[in-house]
Amino acid sequence: MFTGIVTDVGRVLSVEERGALRRMRVACAYAPDTIALGASIACSGPCLTVVARGPEGEGAWFEVDVGAETLDKTSAGAWREGTRLNLERALKIGDELGGHIVTGHVDAVARIEKVEPFDGMSRFSIRVPREFVRFVAPKGSVALDGTSLTVNDVDGEAFSVLLIPHTLKVTTWGERKEGDPLNFEVDLMARYAARLAQTPA
């Protein structure tokens, strides 16, 4: 489990094709001795398992195997050497829950339709596949590229989020532009509420 509060921005160092999966090495600022083999790290949304790690400059590198499903259903298939990723380590009991409960299981790839910068902030208009619109509500939560964000308003298949200067600075959002793909995860509570509404009593 995660909170959608990004703790570092990593950078893809290498991508190695291994049949139906890809081994990726990511540089980060985490201390290498704090990254355990088998640990889960959310990488711009998808929860990935650490299979190797070591020191890299003043930080560390870790490697993950990205499977065919993740490559097909998320933006991970487009990650290349140099791609920057929003990173978050798994939630520990007792940690502050600053965002919302995020599983790291991406539901769909959304797209940025419009970016409106103002006063150091930016408003993003996001389009999601039609079948996921019912999970998005004004003032509700969504996870986009691993970031917990509050929905401002909803208009058909699009919704908007407002990012403050701090978020733009410490995540990859400051680099985002119109047309960019985003890994979209439905809020867990919205998912179960929708399921309960569909199930006969």
Results as ranks from 00 to 15, higher is better:
residue 87 L to P: 00
residue 87 L to K: 01
residue 88 E to T: 02
residue 88 E to S: 01
residue 88 E to L: 03
residue 89 R to M: 11
residue 89 R to E: 04
residue 89 R to P: 00
residue 90 A to E: 11
residue 91 L to F: 13
residue 92 K to Y: 02
residue 94 G to Y: 11
residue 94 G to I: 11
residue 94 G to T: 11
residue 95 D to Y: 08
residue 97 L to S: 04
residue 97 L to E: 09
residue 98 G to D: 07
residue 99 G to D: 03
residue 99 G to C: 04
residue 99 G to Q: 06
residue 100 H to D: 00
residue 100 H to L: 01
residue 101 I to P: 00
residue 101 I to E: 00
residue 103 T to V: 04
residue 103 T to H: 14
residue 104 G to I: 04
residue 104 G to Q: 06
residue 104 G to T: 04
residue 104 G to F: 07
residue 105 H to T: 05
residue 105 H to P: 03
residue 105 H to D: 03
residue 106 V to G: 09
residue 108 A to K: 10
residue 108 A to D: 12
residue 108 A to F: 08
residue 109 V to C: 12
residue 109 V to T: 14
residue 109 V to W: 12
residue 110 A to W: 11
residue 110 A to D: 08
residue 110 A to I: 08
residue 111 R to V: 10
residue 111 R to K: 12
residue 111 R to C: 02
residue 111 R to D: 07
residue 113 E to C: 13
residue 114 K to F: 06
residue 114 K to L: 14
residue 114 K to G: 00
residue 117 P to V: 09
residue 119 D to V: 02
residue 119 D to H: 11
residue 119 D to G: 14
residue 120 G to V: 04
residue 120 G to H: 06
residue 120 G to L: 08
residue 121 M to L: 08
residue 121 M to D: 09
residue 121 M to G: 03
residue 122 S to Q: 12
residue 125 S to E: 15
residue 128 V to N: 09
residue 129 P to Q: 13
residue 129 P to F: 13
residue 130 R to C: 02
residue 131 E to R: 15
residue 131 E to V: 11
residue 132 F to P: 01
residue 134 R to P: 00
residue 135 F to A: 15
residue 136 V to S: 03
residue 137 A to K: 14
residue 137 A to C: 14
residue 138 P to E: 06
residue 138 P to F: 05
residue 138 P to Y: 08
residue 139 K to E: 15
residue 140 G to F: 15
residue 141 S to L: 05
residue 141 S to Y: 12
residue 143 A to E: 02
residue 143 A to G: 03
residue 143 A to V: 08
residue 144 L to N: 06
residue 145 D to F: 03
residue 145 D to M: 07
residue 146 G to H: 08
residue 146 G to C: 11
residue 146 G to A: 10
residue 147 T to H: 02
residue 148 S to P: 01
residue 148 S to T: 00
residue 149 L to G: 05
residue 150 T to N: 07
residue 151 V to Q: 05
residue 151 V to C: 03
residue 151 V to P: 02
residue 153 D to I: 01
residue 153 D to S: 13
residue 153 D to A: 14
residue 153 D to Q: 13
residue 154 V to D: 05
residue 154 V to W: 07
residue 155 D to R: 12
residue 155 D to M: 09
residue 157 E to Q: 13
residue 158 A to T: 10
residue 158 A to D: 07
residue 159 F to N: 01
residue 160 S to W: 01
residue 160 S to A: 15
residue 160 S to F: 00
residue 161 V to N: 10
residue 163 L to S: 02
residue 164 I to Y: 10
residue 165 P to C: 07
residue 169 K to G: 00
residue 169 K to M: 10
residue 170 V to M: 11
residue 170 V to S: 00
residue 170 V to L: 10
residue 171 T to N: 08
residue 171 T to R: 07
residue 172 T to P: 01
